[in-house]
Design a protein around this nucleic acid. Structure first.
Lengths: 212, 212, 212, 212
DNA sequence: TATGAATGAGAGTTCATTCAT
DNA sequence: TATGAATGAACTCTCATTCAT
């Protein structure tokens, strides 16, 4: 689950590489941290674990980060920002006339794909957010809200557009749906079903119900 | 969130109490552990934390448990067993003719109530299972499976009875539904909605869908 | 420079020794800390150093003290309290008619003897007070003031009694004299002169001057 | 407490400045070190602290000094050399017929002024000498001795000249007096008394005594 | 049955120092 | 001449665990 670091890279002329060395190491550390936080959780992960995976000594991490908590804060932020951006970019790229249900289905699919297949950061976020130190949670709050807002709008538009029944409590629906998606990392088995298939079925349940 | 210690208690005749003192202390320790594991997670909870809440010294815990891990194992087991028993007992007590949808609605309600209101054990289980040491997970597996089986039967009966459409993938439905319920502890605000109301709405979403 | 721990010790009947074990260990730790702080200074002394000298592991120190700083605070307090008590007790025990000059000479002698010969705590105090963390200094301030007050009274009485000339700035005199005494630990060589002889000569200088 | 860097400086012709840049940086580092050693002590001062105050990175210090200890050694040396030179130059500049008492009074005044007002190096020396590593102390010993010799001569001449009584132990007198002066940095409050006034009073105490 | 006291292992963190650039 | 980046060693402190009582 290695995510492409999409950071713009200056042309490799004479001096350029040097400029980015620190940034690249920082990324390696964050990648390693995300992986370990996802596997073992924040509290059970040591700086040694992170250093080993990142290819440097634990002490060297302190050249790039002030504390273990700061690493957590950045991993959490990236985790949400990444899924938020990916979902938004994909949904917003859909053709103008795309139905709301279709948009939501795509959002569900991208959310699942990011969480389950593409980003240790996002999975680490889901797993560790609830147990994070208060300051970290407070700092991170806005990022979560922003992504929540995006779903609020997605569902709100669908209701306004008549594709979700008027009486539905969108707040509950959103929390219920996102919760179910987030929890999937606990049971998802890659072999059993593809992510797009899952997304399709979940949307069917949500929109049409399972009643006979 | 103090749960009634339903363990059979010997009659309080002259000599009897002594016999059960150990059991009562053990329960106090488990209660304390469940509370702390729920609040801070297993890794961040110290035996001192548990001892403080249980009213004895950390060292004394070792008279009752062999290790911190063993406490975790028992807390996890109790967490599932308790919700399993409560759900099963309540559902099974419904009148013979009760519809499957109604049974499922009750199961959802009891599951939510136990997780959100009644049992630190259950909440601790949800929070810590995924990050538990492998041996603990392995030991605990059967308990989870048993509860999963109960839901499998609940949903299977509903499908057989024609209240869930034939084409529905019950496995996905179950994981999706239980996942959403389990995740609710991350966002549930007691003031916003009662648990029965939530259960009712969730069943509406699942059975009837939100489509217009 | 092992100081007799004058703490009252209960009779060694059945249970008594147990009661004091912790206190005795605590004293050993403080003794060791005082010795090391005196030799190397607070910042350069490690808990390992202290533990080695006290006969236990560094980690065990935390059973008795909350932090290295707390040890410093106690060492500083004891250092001043001990010299204060010793000087006061000795001076106050002098016969009623003793001259002020004589009283001051005794005070000088006991101060020197405590600092140079009897108490690592006092020497550690002198050496480390100026570089101590602010909180420790603040906490310790009263102890210093109390001892300073005692000297203020000693010199004030002498002036009132006519043994110190009226024009003398007692504040400067006190600081000058105590400063000179405190500094002596930097140059004192036990072989060159006895403490009582030093005290006698210093009093001569102060009272009579060295002018021809 | 910025001291004039009295180091001979080449004339600022076109090419010359480059030659001396290193020397100027070295001085900045030493100044910074003296200030920090005085404030926090040697052990508690980091190369980062020094670098920050000197305006360069900690690593750059190693271009100018081989180790932290070497910086300490130089700071200690400069501290004594500076007070020694200043005292000697001032006293030696006094008119031929100046009394010994007057010379000593001037020496006391300059010593105090240098320590309390002019030189962080000197204050750093006083504070850190006693806790310095043995090698540093050994290296520094001659500098201390030289200044001590100057005072020995000052007092010796006074005794020979009949201004100090014949029976006085000059060695004790010197250690006592210098000690009192050195300790003054622990209690000196600029607002309370000027340095010349202090010097005058101290000489009064020493020469005439405080006895009525 | 519970505790006081101690400990080994290891945590996060700091820091003097190195070295390529 | 100065710096960015890294590191080994050591530090303070925490914690699960042990054991005599």
């Amino acid at each position: 689950m290695n995510e492409g670091q999409a950071r713009p890279q200056a042309s490799r002329s004479r001096r350029a590489p040097t400029i980015k060395k620190s940034a690249r190491t920082k990324t390696r550390i964050l990648d390693a941290a995300a992986t370990m936080f996802r596997r073992q959780g924040y509290a059970a992960t040591t700086l040694n674990d992170i250093g080993r995976l990142a290819g440097l000594r634990a002490a060297s991490i302190y050249y790039h980060f002030a504390s273990k908590e700061e690493i957590l804060a950045q991993v959490l932020d990236i985790g949400i920002d990444r899924i938020h951006e990916t979902v938004r970019r994909t949904v917003d790229a859909l053709p103008a006339g795309t139905s709301h249900r279709q948009r939501i289905r795509v959002a569900v699919e991208v959310h699942l794909a990011t969480l389950l297949q593409h980003s240790d950061y996002t999975a680490a976020n889901i797993i560790n957010y609830g147990l994070s130190p208060d300051e970290v949670r407070a700092h991170h709050h806005n990022h979560r809200e922003a992504y929540g807002d995006y779903w609020r709008k997605l569902l709100g538009d669908a209701q306004t557009g008549g594709e979700i029944a008027a009486g539905v409590d969108l707040s509950l629906l959103r929390l219920f749906l996102i919760g179910a998606l987030n929890w999937s990392h606990e049971w998802y088995q890659p072999k059993e079903k593809t992510v797009p298939a899952m997304a399709e079925e979940i949307c069917g349940i949500i929109f049409d119900g399972v009643g006979a």
